[in-house]
Design a protein around this nucleic acid. Structure first.
Lengths: 119, 119
DNA sequence: TCGATATATTGATATTTATCAATATATAAA
DNA sequence: TTTATATATTGATAAATATCAATATATCGA
């Protein structure tokens, strides 16, 4: 999976944009476009299985997919699906290690969400 | 809408339970029951219109429903529906003032969510 | 008590989401 | 190169969600 320079730049720009939305918390007014940017990220964490997965990955900063199916009690394809949603929301990041998929926590995203709800 | 003493006690217990889940952040492992408790609260904020509504209410700590329909560009019943969801998740609290409904931010809940994602 | 206004509820519909079984793909090991 | 294992994708289905029009309810003011 190759990422071009301009795609990487776009990614960084969007990451920054999310941070900018969050940094002031909910007390600075959130417009429609910011809400549309943030809602999918929050939607990603708003599911019991995904919360558990995120928690396990956050525990050591990373976890192997092979250790993530049992704890949530769902089928392998379903867990794979949830991991994809977390990855697309950039809450975690996927790395291939041999035949295993490792997922790393994105602390920045977590901080962003934390800041959004800080009083 | 009357609340009995035992209902109030139950409410306080559940509020405390949510706080307990959140206080350690996601890095202490989240079990299924905790995930089931937290997910509906996160689901409530995971919607663009509800994020905007929460933001407007948070801005001054409170807001009248009469000022909440226009900014999100949805019908009055739909906004009423979203406010109900935020209220049931106890992110806001409803107060009747004459013919107007006022909604107050629940800072504790906000802090809980913030703590959950704190690194 | 009656009309006006603010908000909530109901009922219907379209869309999205969660889930699994079956299958495909990718990597490592023999 | 074949086989085994880990993970992803597809396709189908059931359930949940978002939305609005129509209507109900509640409160104020006359």
């Amino acid at each position: 999976m190759h990422v071009t320079k301009s795609q990487a730049k776009e990614l960084r720009r969007e990451l920054q944009e999310v941070s900018d939305c969050c940094s002031q918390g909910l007390r600075s007014p959130i417009g429609k476009s910011e809400a549309d940017l943030l809602a999918p990220i929050l939607k990603a964490v708003a599911h019991p299985a995904r919360l558990q997965l995120l928690s396990i990955i956050a525990l050591n900063g990373q976890a192997c997919a092979c250790d993530l199916t049992a704890p949530v009690g769902l089928s392998q394809p379903t867990v794979s699906h949830h991991l994809k949603i977390l990855t697309e929301a950039e809450l975690i990041h996927r790395e291939q290690r041999g035949q295993w998929a490792w997922f790393h926590i994105n602390k920045k995203r977590m901080k962003d969400i934390s800041a959004l709800f800080a009083v």
